Simulated assay, not measured.
Amino acid sequence: MTTQVLDNQAVGNTGRWFSSNPDKAWVEKFFLLYSPVWMASMAVMMFTGWAESFGDAGLLAHAALTALPVLLIPMVLAARYTDVPWQDSYWLKANLYLFVFGFFGNYFGSEYFFDLLGMVYHYPNATTTLDAALVGSGEQTVPLIMYFYTHVYFMTYHATANIALRRLKSSGLPGMVALFPIFVFVVGYIWAWLETKAMANPMMADSFYYRDMARMLAYGSAIYATYFIASFPIYYYLDETRDKRWNLLVVIAAALSASMLTFYLLDFITHWLGTL
């Protein structure tokens, strides 16, 4: 099985899009294929007004059904593509990393967007919430559904960043030490800008908006990009090669490291920009 997968997916040392580790490569391909599915799920929710008509249980069900396939489908399909034990598989480690980092982003990071950029969640039907007790002003709460949605957002952002960064690293361009961090910022900023643009639209104005849109447009994408500046370079190396596989403890430590780096960056920016 392993030899066949390697023969089918082996690539040269230059110009690679996908990892030379087949256990990682097939999962990244699945993440790409699933990305338009979750985007369609969110679009249907916006166009139909489900967010306003569903109760808390309905919203949680939609959020869970959107996010859980990222874990469950690779779990079911894994035996077809790899003989790596499930506890050492990339699909499990990627989901674990994204869960830990996404939890930080909602539990702590959202407070900075509330107080620094004037972000507002307005989901009166989403009564189950979870956010920091001490960080932030406490004027807003984070609906639990956001933890599920963040998982699929971050899945797509990190998978595409891996592919772009790998293509750059394997391109043979000179000056990679300087180019790599610049490219990390560019890819992170693009995704931050795209999500900001997608979320701040009239169709979502009743449930998501910014109290200070001018400030958000001026600084928001760059501030959100701090998440990815901290996380993309760490996540990239998760099982990037077959001979340097991370155990689950290292995966958790890596996600917590990315979280703490983001925490520092957000707080440093707050010193400079100040709260609303």
Rank of each mutant, 00 (worst) to 15 (best):
V251E: 00
F228R: 01
D206C: 04
R245D: 02
Y209N: 08
Y189K: 06
T160E: 09
V250R: 14
Y236T: 02
L238S: 07
P181M: 02
M204S: 15
I252V: 14
F154S: 08
D243G: 11
M155H: 12
A255S: 07
V184E: 00
V250G: 13
A222D: 06
R167W: 14
T156L: 13
A255R: 00
Y157K: 03
W246K: 05
S207R: 07
Y235W: 12
V187W: 00
A161C: 12
S207C: 15
Y235P: 00
A205E: 09
A254M: 11
F232G: 00
P174V: 04
L173R: 14
M199W: 10
L168V: 11
L179R: 03
I163H: 01
M216G: 05
N247S: 08
V184F: 01
Y224C: 11
D212E: 13
F228K: 03
L249T: 13
Y153F: 15
N247Y: 12
L217V: 13
I234L: 15
I190K: 06
N162S: 11
L249R: 11
I163T: 04
A178G: 02
L249A: 14
S207W: 05
S171A: 11
A218T: 14
F228Q: 01
L249H: 11
A198C: 06
A178R: 07
Y224R: 13
Y157P: 00
L256R: 05
V186D: 01
Y157V: 15
A222Y: 12
A178S: 13
W193M: 05
M176A: 07
N201C: 03
K197V: 09
L165Y: 05
S170G: 08
L173T: 06
L217G: 06
L248F: 08
Y209L: 09
L165A: 10
A192E: 02
W193H: 07
D212R: 08
A253K: 04
P233K: 04
R215Y: 03
Y237A: 13
A205R: 10
L165R: 05
P233E: 03
L217K: 06
V177Y: 11
E195T: 10
V186M: 04
W191S: 07
W246V: 06
L217N: 12
D243Q: 14
A225D: 00
M155L: 15
W246L: 14
H158W: 03
L173S: 12
F208R: 01
M203V: 15
L249Y: 10
W191I: 06
H158M: 14
N201G: 11
R167Y: 15
A161R: 01
A198D: 05
